Amino acid sequence: MRTLGVEEEFLLVDPVTGQPKAVGQAVLAMSAEAELTGELQQEQLETATRPCRTLGELSAQIRSTRSTAAAAADDVGAALVPIATSPLTVSPTITPSLRYAEMASRFGLTVAEGLTCGCHVHVEVDSPDEGVAVLDRIRPWLAPLLALSANSPFWNGNDSGYRSYRTQAWQRWPCAGPYSPFGSAEEYRAFVATALATDTLLDEGMVYIEARLSRHFPTVEVRVADVCREPDDAVLVAGLVRALVQTAADDAARGSAPDPVRTEVLQLAEWRASRWGMEAELLDPLTWRPAPAAAVIDALITHATPALEEAGDLHLVRELLDAVLRRGTGAQRQREVLARTGDLSEVVRDAVHRTSAKPLS
């Protein structure tokens, strides 16, 4: 069974007002926990699980890392929030580093406003060639994963009209979003080399396509999802990613060609997922025509069922999916809280409880 792991990015906020708080460096200085790292902005903190074999193990790890991060934030008078953009107005504070300073100089407002939080899923692959074969074959199914994870309807004090506005903000970067098939590890490396030779990106870490080969681990890294409000939703997304990776690897081993769908069509699919999440029609990867979101996710499950069964994950994934369909995504929850309270700070306060049992002040 392929190992998998999850990296999650969180907002750090004032526990009374819900306003983002630039204490990322202070949190790291006070904590010796290896699973906690900083990010571009000081109003963020990132966690990482260990490689896991089962979804049960991953679930425990996600809850543990969230709890650890919430406790570390509390030590410096902040709260940890699993939402992908700040509902309240904020002028982010760049984390001190030469790399981030150069990014700020080169990319301007994209960095100055770039306070977004994603969920990155790593799944083990046998080799770079297998990894690239996987990248080529999972492309059609990434937008539905975004729809399931959508958790960023508000941006700087405004209703964006989107369910995942993080996606819109993230795609300001010059090498972000859907990608074309590569064909081989050699061609993938040629793409990276060409991208770097343009002198637009600072380094390979800025190859921000939706899924890529990890630079540090023998994994495929899928980066399309918002950070999930619910720990169970992160487990669901990770379980589906692993099943898609296994399905793609099996298809490649049988000699099945990847879907030749154009990148421009994938951009349309991602835009719809970002705009409406699970609340309207997505593009069905089997037809590239609009279809109800639940039907598209059901098609994803059907596509990956052999891999889900092989891993023993099918029952749990269906259970977790039913929970999302019943209660809604993080974006739906955020809008429900605002409709009930009329207060964006309450949206933030409500989400804090998904990382810590300790209530806000």
Rank of each mutant, 00 (worst) to 15 (best):
R272F: 15
G183M: 11
V192M: 00
P258V: 04
P181A: 08
A112R: 14
F107N: 03
V207L: 04
S31C: 14
L201V: 00
G277Q: 14
W155R: 01
N158S: 10
M103R: 08
T110I: 11
T93A: 02
K358A: 09
H315G: 00
S127Q: 02
V224Q: 06
G255F: 07
A176Q: 02
Q44P: 11
E7L: 03
L115I: 05
E9I: 00
E309I: 10
L202I: 15
A211R: 05
L320M: 07
L360G: 12
W141E: 13
V27Q: 02
V121L: 01
D284W: 00
L115C: 05
A143M: 13
A34S: 11
A193G: 10
V192A: 00
A147Q: 13
P359C: 01
V27K: 01
A70H: 03
S149F: 08
R333A: 06
P231R: 08
P231C: 12
A225L: 06
Q41R: 15
L40R: 11
V241S: 01
H216E: 14
I209A: 04
T247S: 15
A29G: 14
E186P: 00
I138M: 08
E204Y: 06
S59N: 11
P144E: 07
C175I: 05
A197C: 03
A253W: 06
L115H: 02
E57G: 04
A143C: 14
Y100T: 15
Q41H: 12
T54D: 05
E210G: 04
V241Y: 07
L360F: 06
T219N: 01
V207I: 04
T49G: 03
P178C: 12
A197K: 05
G38T: 13
I94P: 01
D74E: 15
H303D: 11
V125M: 14
E309Q: 02
P87F: 11
G18R: 07
V237F: 08
A339F: 08
S361G: 13
V235G: 07
E8R: 10
E9H: 02
R163N: 12
E319H: 06
E319Y: 05
T247N: 15
D14V: 14
K21C: 09
L240P: 05
T167P: 00
V134F: 03
W276F: 15
V235A: 03
A190Y: 07
I138F: 12
W141I: 14
A78W: 12
G312S: 12
L148V: 09
R354N: 15
L88S: 01
F154P: 09
L12F: 14
N151L: 10
L240T: 09
A29P: 09
P82E: 01
A69M: 02
P128H: 08
S97F: 08
R63C: 14
H303T: 09
G38H: 08
V347Y: 13
G118P: 02
E336N: 04
Q44I: 10
R349A: 13
